[in-house]
Nucleic acid binder design. Sequence first.
RNA 1: GAUCGCGUAGCUCAGUCGGUAGAGCAACCGCCUUUUAAGCGGUAGGUCCUGGGUUCGAGUCCCAGCGCGAUCACCA
Length: 504
Amino acid sequence: MSVTDSTERTDSDLVAARRAKLARWRDDLGIDPWGRRVEGLVPLAEARGMFDQAAAEAMEGEPTPDPDPRPRAVVAGRVVQHRAMGKLCFMVLRDESGDMQISCSKADLEPASFKLASKVDYGDIVVAAGPVGRTRRGEICIWADRFEVHCKSLAPPPEKFHGLTDAEQRYRRRYVDMYASPDTMATFLQRSRIVSDIRRFMESHGFVEVETPMMQPIAGGAAARPFVTHHNALDIDLYMRIAPELYLKRLLVGGMRRVFEINRNFRNEGISRRHNPEFTMMEAYEAFGDCESVMRLTESLLRSLAGGTVAFGDLEIDYEADFDRTTYGALFQTTFGCDMGDEAAVRAVATAKGLEDADTRDAWLLVEALFGEAEETIDPSRPTWVTDFPSALSPLSRPHQDDPSLAWRAELFIAGMELGNFYTELNDPDIQRARFTEQLEGINDEDAAFRSLDEDFLDALLVGMPPAGGFGIGIDRVVMLMTGNTSIRDVVLFPLMKPEERGE
RNA sequence: GAUCGCGUAGCUCAGUCGGUAGAGCAACCGCCUUUUAAGCGGUAGGUCCUGGGUUCGAGUCCCAGCGCGAUCACCA
């Protein structure tokens, strides 16, 4: 198949027009429309900041000074507006720092450059240089005396005012969304800063960042369904990790006091406004800490990220005040009117709610299934700790000494979302083995394929893990809260989508 | 997985009671040295998501499917 064939088959008239223009520029103007290295570029926002009012006024008076006192700038950006009027043309360039107008007068430019400037298309990437001044209407701009096209955009652009509004198109063609919607760019730049701030915060508290396996022979540390892959040379199945927990704990055994990891987890489950199959998690472990110490750490981290109150949908969430606290049992009690430890009462509620296997399923699993309704009673505008989870539902956390049915475990809820899990880690190898074994007894054959006993982890606990606090928080959800985006897809650059059907 | 909504030009959107497919932007041609979603004149551009059905006639009504979104369910 030749290139021409493919071009003829797939190009719309709009693409054909852009290709024709590109050919004319190459043939008639002798330019290379694919660009080259450019020295001395400054971001558009910086170029705007260079504007000097006195110099601009001097140029507008009589006589005009020589040399030109206005500061000069070299900029690059994508053309997002273009207004040509004969011997003068204006265009607005956009880069990640913002927008800026470029004004091109036929009198100031080489004839070929002016012709280019008059004819560029929305979406082309151009370089311009000249004095930073302003127009009669006061718009700060660069009066270009150099103008070059450094990448011809061949694809038809979105509508210049509305941009892309179709959510599907925004996710599938994020590269268009990013330049067409400054809010999108702002969100992802903010995400980058947030992750960077989190790293600095953790490092300033003595935590060391590590990287542990993302392909694991046993998918441990959580209860989600994993993605399966295969290593050919070893001829073994591997699982994309659902959590780094069991590896990070091995590092405590090895002697690291404070570790954290920010990386992707993969869970082969539903997609929703709050769930993407691959998502970024931070897990951290603090030897000689406990559930309380990592809760305090997290509260302080979120407080520093938020810097006060942040809007999320209709909510105004205040991170400054101490977070609210309640217990798992109290929430259960107020929602269902019975003690979560009262098996008969729990079964009665579960039966009344129409849960499957309400008579036969483990009573704690019924409590867990019911608990979602209790979560909804938490004030979404208040960051809230839910503490004292049932031990039966917390196989990796240490039971309370005075009441072993409760675990030293908390979850943080904000805006109706589960932000993360906080534990005093279980480091007794015998209890840990018992917990794993109990868990494995109740599961079906399908789950058994990937949930086998992690003997190596239990060996590590035999070597001895210091007492520790540990936690994991969903970074995407933190970014949602801090940027006011209510869908995880708006804070993940390339959210998972069903592949598009494309004709051969 | 369930329910509801949406799918029309490259993009943003109209399309009445079922009666020849529309606008703005973008594109193409022409004019224009101070525009701000520039303006003016002209031209071209459609698998109305797909497949069935009802009808003299379907973008419109019905059924099924596909994609996306919202809500719910699932998610130690």
